[in-house]
């Protein structure tokens, strides 16, 4: 079986920026694995995940996701997009819509175009969305508007939307940054559990090394756009993590960037 993610010698600079955000990255994620991305602010975690989601143009190197290679010049085929689910760092929810509507939005790519336009979900879509809500522990919020929710509640909605999409690869950008420690562990259990239950792959970024250790089989350290380590979780030393954050504190500019 082809790996879920295969990256060879990937480099990328954001438009209008001279400094590369990713530099000569190579990474292999076998199907079914849960991998954590650790790295300081500005390391390139969001950039790497967005690139794998097919949202960035003009990179160099070879990248394939779920057996199909990405094209640096054009977005992936729409039919492939539902297979890759994304949990956005800033949630990216429709504030004025209800929680249920937002979670159903995760199913739009799997509906017929007419149904997607009319917003008439099938009973299967509705069941999937309600199950995702229940899994995330927010079934009682279904009818609430997102703009009335707390940060932690929004984060769960963002995760529920991704799960309702039934992706084969889950890309999660700091999916538990707004949750208290107990809730964070709970949600990561859910996210990696949901991935494992359906044989899906999960790649999540985090600023919490202890959580990464608990929930990932492998940990990738990234700093200044480069991969500095890529090891099975039980091989990761305290020292390596400490160095990851210490090194960049000395790099000009990077240490000054506020945690978003």
């Amino acid at each position: 079986m082809s790996p879920a993610v295969q990256i060879d010698d990937l480099s990328f600079a954001h438009p209008g920026s001279d400094l590369p955000a990713l530099e000569r990255i190579s990474l292999l994620v076998p199907t079914g694995e849960s991998v954590a991305l650790l790295g300081p602010s500005g390391a390139g975690k969001t950039t790497l995940l967005a690139l794998l989601d097919g949202r960035l143009r003009g990179w160099q190197g070879r990248t394939s996701v779920l057996g199909a290679s990405l094209d640096p010049d054009r977005p992936p085929l729409r039919a492939r997009r539902p297979d890759t689910g994304f949990v956005f760092q800033e949630f990216a929810l429709v504030e004025r819509s209800t929680v249920l509507r937002n979670v159903l939005n995760g199913r739009l790519g799997r509906m017929s175009p007419l149904r997607a336009l009319m917003g008439s979900s099938t009973s299967h879509d509705l069941e999937t969305a309600l199950a995702a809500l229940a899994d995330c522990g927010i079934a009682d919020l279904a009818e609430r508007r997102v703009d009335s929710l707390s940060g932690g509640q929004r984060q769960r909605v963002a995760i529920a939307r991704c799960l309702a999409q039934e992706p084969r690869l889950i890309l999660a950008d700091e999916p538990v940054s707004s949750l208290d420690p107990a809730r964070a562990a709970e949600v990561l259990t859910l996210l990696t559990g949901a991935a494992r239950a359906r044989g899906a792959t999960a790649l999540f970024s985090s600023h919490q090394p202890d959580l990464a250790r608990r929930f990932a089989q492998r940990i990738v350290g990234i700093s200044g756009g480069r991969i500095v380590f890529d090891v099975p979780t039980f091989d990761l030393s305290e020292e390596a993590t400490a160095n990851l954050y210490r090194d960049t504190a000395r790099m000009p500019g990077v240490g000054l960037r506020a945690v978003s």
């Binding site: 994304f86 429709v94 819509s97 739009l108």
Partner: peptide, 24 residues
């Protein structure tokens, strides 16, 4: 951001207009 999120989920342009742009 929500428009990009719906696009990432595979929603077409009309569905994005209907469910991400119009509600706002």
């Amino acid at each position: 951001a929500p428009i990009a999120a719906l696009e990432s989920a595979g929603a077409g342009p009309l569905a994005r207009l209907r469910h991400a742009i119009w509600p706002q």
